[in-house]
Design a binder for these strands. Structure first.
Lengths: 156, 156
DNA sequence: AACGGATCGTTCGGGGCACTAACGTTCGTG
DNA sequence: CACGAACGTTAGTGCCCCGAACGATCCGTT
């Protein structure tokens, strides 16, 4: 009676999503780790390129990275010379974080890495299916970014 | 040069997937936390119902929960009277974990909770879209469970 | 019967990600 | 000036995933 390949419970979307996400997360993390990076690094660098120089609070709101995690993330990136942290002359509470040329090169590298990972992740899907998946996920993400406050973008 | 609007990086499947997964993870975790549970609890109880009484190692292999995390998870569930841990008379290395009636009721409750969470998660999608998403994710999950060794299921 | 390899359960620790609490500093505004 | 708000920082929590190590037990071989 017991089906060795599929039980009832593992067909639940939440199970599928969390498990797939776990795989995706692992693949992405492994890809980043292979170049001594973490997800936060990419997210911060990408957001930084999108916004230009900005304060930590602004970056946190835009990237969805918690303020308290921003500190460590920026520390790491700054230690590696990928971003620069300078006091804002117009507001002494703020630091202005900016992307260095090395940081930009780093970002390009991480993007390439990520593209590779995605091919790996989406290997079993046809181009059409990949487009479908992207659309569906985008719809979900948009919805939840709207309702739940933590919107990564479009909240400037 | 720069991508002023929201063109580039946040359309990447990996970004969409990890972000969506983050939302899914949060929703699921919140749903479970509302009844003092964690994802591991559900996964273990569900696996236990699927397999029947089994050793911790077997449960770990089938549920994808790391052996070292199994200990704490079973401790918690056993403290709550949801599972029973008894020494295996035929192999003194092993414990036989079994589901109590209370554990079964608990599982039913968590399943209901999960169903609610899924409605919340998939709210913006039509039934047809939900089916599409489920199919795509199942395909991805199956692929990666096959290739990557750490398959949560179908490894008996 | 003794040995060696494998399995099982357990403890400890760490990494990544998301989040809370608290604190001192600085900025605006009343 | 005083007050509340925003900013950056530190410290700590929780969940999930993973690895290292260890004692106890089982099993196949000798």
């Amino acid at each position: 009676m017991e089906n060795p390949s599929l039980g009832g419970w593992q067909a639940l979307p939440s199970w599928l999503l969390t498990q797939t996400a776990a795989h995706a997360h692992r693949l992405v993390a492994e890809g980043f780790a292979a170049v001594q990076a973490r997800g936060y690094h990419y997210r911060l660098l990408a957001t930084l390129e999108e916004l230009g120089p900005a304060s930590q609070a602004t970056l946190g709101r835009s990237s969805g990275i918690h303020l308290s995690d921003m500190v460590a993330t920026i520390n790491e990136l700054a230690d590696a010379g990928l971003v620069e942290r300078a006091p804002d002359p117009t507001d002494r509470r703020r630091n202005v974080i900016s992307l260095t040329p090395a940081g930009k090169r780093r970002l390009r590298r991480l993007e390439k890495r990520l593209a590779t990972t995605q091919d790996e992740l989406l290997a079993p899907l046809s181009p059409e299916e990949r487009r479908q998946l992207t659309d569906l996920l985008a719809k979900l993400l948009d919805h939840h970014n709207r309702s739940a406050g933590g919107s990564p973008i479009s909240r400037g």
